[in-house]
Simulated assay, not measured.
Amino acid sequence: MPISQEKSSARTSSTLRARQVILSELRTRDRWVMWKQAYRGGLPTKVPIQPTGKPASSTNPATWSPWPRVRPAARKGYVLGEASAASTWTIAS
């Protein structure tokens, strides 16, 4: 294998390990939401929802869920920041 491919492969492996560590840490926190796509002003946006289908809020921790509740969902996200000014980070699945 050429050196450039070895470096690329090592970098990819290292990135995947780091990603797994980060995700395992995030999974211990009840800051997960599911989301559905909606359109506002003709543009697509992500609307947070709870596993029950009720609306979730990036600023209301009472609407956030533990990882096991959102894990089966195709569209899920993690709430970043403090509840008063939080934003949601989407997990591609």
Rank of each mutant, 00 (worst) to 15 (best):
K46G: 02
S13F: 10
T52S: 15
G77I: 06
W35D: 09
K54C: 04
A62S: 14
M34T: 09
S24N: 15
D30Q: 14
W64F: 04
W89T: 04
L23K: 14
A92Q: 10
T15V: 10
Y78K: 07
R69G: 08
T15L: 10
S14L: 08
I3K: 12
E6V: 13
S93M: 04
I3V: 10
Q50D: 09
V47E: 14
S65M: 06
A73F: 13
S87K: 12
G81V: 00
S58L: 04
A92F: 01
Q50W: 03
E6M: 13
S8W: 12
S65Q: 11
S8P: 06
A10I: 10
L43F: 11
R40I: 13
A62Q: 10
R19L: 12
Q50R: 15
A56K: 07
R11W: 00
E6W: 04
I22Y: 11
A62L: 02
I49Q: 08
D30W: 01
V21W: 04
T45P: 02
R69Q: 13
V21H: 05
Y78Q: 01
I91R: 12
S14A: 14
D30I: 06
A18T: 10
S84C: 01
A62N: 13
T90S: 15
R69H: 11
A92Y: 00
S87W: 08
G77P: 05
S9Q: 14
G81H: 05
S24G: 14
S87L: 02
D30Y: 03
P68C: 06
S9D: 09
G53V: 02
A92V: 02
V70E: 06
L23C: 12
R69K: 14
T15D: 10
T12H: 12
A18I: 03
M1K: 02
Y78D: 05
K76L: 15
V21C: 05
S13Y: 15
A92H: 13
P55F: 05
V33W: 01
I3F: 11
T63W: 12
M34I: 07
A56Q: 11
V70R: 01
A85Q: 12
R31D: 09
R40T: 06
W67I: 02
S57Y: 01
T15F: 06
S24M: 11
I22P: 04
Q20C: 04
R11A: 11
S9N: 13
L16F: 03
E25V: 02
V47R: 14
K36V: 15
V70H: 03
R71P: 01
A73W: 11
G53Y: 01
T15G: 01
R29E: 14
P51S: 03
A83V: 10
G41Q: 00
R19F: 01
N60R: 11
W64M: 01
W89K: 09
M1L: 08
S57T: 05
V33Q: 07
R69V: 09
S14D: 06
P55M: 08
K54L: 14
S84E: 07
A18V: 03
